[in-house]
């Protein structure tokens, strides 16, 4: 049985473990793929997803139902991913470009990526984008989220998101043509 967010939250008040298990099962794939596209490596994505759901578990009793559960989950996962990349940069003293090029190299690893050459080129082009533009592009292109939802998650205006997405598409096109 597929529970709605409201039903899950109601169930959480009476049977928290069961409701939380259902919540993880409902959103794990969406959250995992969202995180995986940002950090590329499975082990890192796995850690971030686990941390995300642990935070959800800890704070679900205080969750205000004014905002949507789905939006809240995406917000936590996005922040965790961004913080992970920040920590990686400061830990190894790597500038932004080097982190992205390191991730780009990992894409070529057979254990990481299973797509064809065109998909690989697309991923490499996405990794050339600035961090926030990359997240916006992923959410719009892969997750197919409407601008309004992305706006709620990232706290950016719809106009700003549209402009960012447009610039990202142009940059990707340019990269694909040049390479």
């Amino acid at each position: 049985m597929d529970y709605s967010d409201k039903e899950l939250l109601e169930l959480f008040k009476t049977n928290s473990s069961y409701a939380f298990n259902l919540l993880v099962r409902k959103y794990q794939k969406q959250i995992y793929w969202h995180v995986r596209r940002i950090v590329i490596v499975h082990d890192d994505a796995n850690d971030i997803v686990q941390n995300t759901f642990i935070k959800v578990w800890e704070n679900l009793k205080n969750f205000r139902e004014e905002s949507k559960l789905y939006t809240w989950l995406y917000q936590i996962a996005t922040n965790e991913s961004i913080n992970f990349l920040k920590k990686k940069r400061t830990k190894f003293f790597i500038p932004i470009i080097d982190v992205e090029s390191e991730l780009s190299q990992k894409l070529e690893d057979n254990n990481c990526f299973s797509g064809n050459q065109i998909q690989l080129k697309l991923q490499k082009a996405i990794l050339k984008l600035p961090e926030k533009q990359r997240i916006i592009f992923n959410m719009r292109y892969f997750d197919e989220l409407p601008y309004e939802k992305i706006s709620e998650i990232l706290g950016t205006t719809v106009g700003g998101l549209k402009a960012s997405y447009h610039h990202a598409v142009k940059k990707i096109e340019k990269f694909v043509i040049e390479n």
Partner: peptide
């Protein structure tokens, strides 16, 4: 959407 996500390998 499923085609897009299947680009990465998962255990």
């Amino acid at each position: 959407m499923e085609d897009k996500t299947n680009m990465f390998k998962v255990p």
